[in-house]
Design a protein around this nucleic acid. Structure first.
Lengths: 207, 207
DNA sequence: CCTCCGAATGTTAGTCACTAACATTGAGGT
DNA sequence: ACCTCAATGTTAGTGACTAACATTCGGAGG
């Protein structure tokens, strides 16, 4: 449908944004997050500091990646409500990770950039904190997608508990993935981490 | 043993620290974290802004509570290594929470202050992020206390996954505890959240 | 082709968290 | 009574971030 091709101004806008982020991640990786100022990033990207803030709300957002909340939520919503909560959520996370890192050719091209961002997020306390907090958005999306009885605080509490556990496990897998520099398949790592936490039977084989 | 009674200078130091933190939490609760500057806190406490930073590394640390890592680690280390990881860690968390909120009379007196701090931590994004990141310290302490084979990255990965899941569940319980303004017993909430995530049989009855 | 609108960017002048360096005061041991 | 040094104050910075206003230029309409 409405796939209007981007105008020149829009292309320049996106390109500026991309350039700023690319230079930021490169500089942060080279010199360390704290040793690089926003002014440094702006200069490297050939823009003013103000423009950086127009594209990214905070310095941290230069590295933070948007959490694929819809992707996960859709898979959670499609999972059979009869299964245990952690199996529904865990399965959705494994599937979403497979969709994001596995097939797509474009994903493979960006994998280096993705790993650089994640490495910064894992190693820099400020970024790690923000990333962990960002999972709250994802958590709420998943809890909503689980479709628990909204009138029952008890049921919602159980859903939140199970979801937060699954997301924490995924974060552990992400950390490990970065430590191995992406050598092991991410979905596999998540599945293993889920099995270690919830038992082997809680991680269903897909199909 | 060496229970030398505190000198006047030490008493003043502790009192200054306590006053700063009390005024900070009060002001943050009244006006909101972002609407209160460190200078405001300093003025309320009758000290200079520099003194606030001498007692607390950052503005966030005015609210953050030290995680009782040793308390939890000791209980984890004492748990039978034959049990599943999540049961060992989860049980330790329930016990530690009971020790912290249940018996002690001093704990009951500070419960209002504790709840105020936790409420700020849950509701303020910056504080929530820092608190979540702070659990990394606790996580490492627990993983060490589990005594897994240090030579096996696989075993350590499983321990990290299970521990992070348990801590996330505890955080969910803490959030709920704050939402209920402390009306339900915290250990009970943690136990229920653990059961919802790992199954009822994974939460052993103590004894 | 000209013209005007507005989106993207630049500039300037702030606020506030946080740090470093140096000055001051007073508790506590000699 | 004196000296030491820990606790605090003062001052001058850096850097993240914001608000307000100026500028430029792509693009839509005449």
């Amino acid at each position: 449908m409405s796939e209007r091709e981007p105008t020149l101004r829009e292309r320049r806008y996106s390109e500026t944004r991309r350039a700023i982020q690319a230079h930021a991640v490169r500089l942060f990786t080279e010199r360390g997050y704290d040793a690089v100022t926003v002014a440094d990033v702006a200069e490297a990207a050939g823009v003013s500091a103000m423009t950086v803030y127009r594209h990214f709300a905070t310095k941290e957002d230069l590295v933070l990646l948007e959490q694929p909340a819809e992707l996960v939520a859709a898979r959670v919503a499609a999972s059979p409500p009869t299964q245990p909560l952690v199996r529904r959520v865990g399965g959705a996370l494994v599937d979403a990770a497979a969709a994001l890192t596995g097939g797509s050719d474009e994903a493979a091209a960006n994998e280096r950039f993705l790993l650089d961002c994640l490495r910064l997020m894992v190693e820099t306390p400020a970024l790690r904190a923000r990333h962990l907090d960002g999972q709250y958005v994802l958590q709420q999306a998943v809890v909503d997608a689980l479709g628990v009885d909204a009138a029952s605080p008890e049921a919602e509490f159980r859903a939140r508990a199970a979801t937060s556990a699954c997301l924490a496990v995924m974060h552990t897998a992400l950390t490990r993935w970065v430590e191995e520099d992406g050598r092991t398949s991410l979905p596999e790592l998540i599945a293993h981490a889920l099995a270690a936490s919830f038992g082997d039977d809680a991680v269903g084989q897909r199909g």
